[in-house]
Design a protein around this nucleic acid. Structure first.
Length: 194
DNA sequence: AATACCTCCAACCGCAAGCAG
DNA sequence: CCTGCTTGCGGTTGGAGGTAT
C-alpha cells in the first residue's frame, strides 16, 4: 500500500492529530467538490495527509451528521444485540446506529462494555482468560457462550437493574475534546464561504 | 503537591476486497 | 486474466486527561 510513498517528489506526509486548519481545509474542499478519490482529494486540497487519513478524519469526526459521545441506553442495547449477532462487524453495526461511526462503536465496546463483561464473568466465577478477549472476532456468537451471556447477564452499570436510568450523558457536546468544537468548525467553514 | 496509575478516544497500521486499465 | 490502485474494515497504539495514592 504505502510501498511507494513518494511517486514524484518527496511529499512529506503529516501524521498525528489534525489541526484546526487542516480540518477547515478538508471541510471546505469536500463542501465544494464532494467526497471523491481520497488520495487525489488530499493532494488537491493541499493537505499533507494520506487519503486514508483524510477519509478517517472526515468519517469519524468532521461529517456534519456525525454524533459523538452521549451513547444512549437504547443505543447501548442495540450495540450489544447486534454484536451478539454479528460479532466485531463494527461497520455493519454502525449502519444501524445513525450518526455513529464504526470507530466510536468499536471504542465504546472495548472500553465500556468489554470491561463490564469481564467483571461480570469474574463475578460468575469465570476467569477472564477463559473468555479470551478476541473470541468474538471471528467465531463470535456461535461458539462463544460468553457472548450470549453478555446479552443477559451483563448489566451495564449505567442502566441496569432499575430500568435504564441514567447515563445522562454528561458529555454535553464533547466540547472539550479538541480545542475547538464542531460548531466552531462549521461556523468557520460557513464564514469561509462555501 | 507530586506522581503513579487508569481510562478513553483519535489516529495509525496492515490486510483484504473491489475495480479499472 | 493480471496488475496496481483505492477503499473499507478491524485491530492496535499513543497520548491527554482524570483519579487515586
Amino acid at each position: 500500500m504505502d510501498k511507494k510513498p513518494c511517486k514524484s517528489i518527496d511529499v512529506e506526509v503529516r501524521k498525528g492529530p489534525w489541526t484546526m486548519e487542516e480540518d477547515l481545509i478538508l471541510m471546505n474542499y469536500i463542501a465544494n467538490h464532494g467526497e471523491g478519490v481520497w488520495n487525489s482529494l488530499a493532494r488537491s486540497a493541499g493537505l499533507k495527509r494520506t487519503g486514508k487519513s483524510c477519509r478517517l478524519r472526515w468519517l469519524n469526526y468532521l461529517r456534519p451528521d456525525v454524533r459523538r459521545g452521549n451513547i444512549t441506553p437504547e443505543e447501548q442495547l442495540l450495540i450489544m444485540e447486534l454484536h451478539a449477532k454479528w460479532g466485531n462487524r463494527w461497520s455493519k453495526i454502525a449502519k444501524h446506529l445513525p450518526g455513529r461511526t464504526d470507530n466510536e462503536i468499536k471504542n465504546y465496546w472495548r472500553t465500556r462494555i468489554q470491561k463490564h463483561i469481564k467483571q461480570a464473568q469474574n463475578c460468575t466465577g469465570q476467569t477472564a482468560e477463559n473468555s479470551n478477549d478476541q473470541a468474538s472476532s471471528s467465531q463470535v456468537s456461535s461458539s462463544c457462550p460468553a457472548d450470549h451471556a453478555v446479552d443477559q447477564s451483563y448489566s451495564p452499570p449505567s442502566f441496569n437493574g432499575n430500568n435504564m436510568e441514567p447515563y445522562h450523558a454528561p458529555f454535553p457536546t464533547e466540547s472539550n475534546e479538541n480545542l475547538w468544537t464542531m460548531e466552531d468548525l462549521w461556523s468557520l467553514h460557513l464564514l469561509n464561504g462555501d
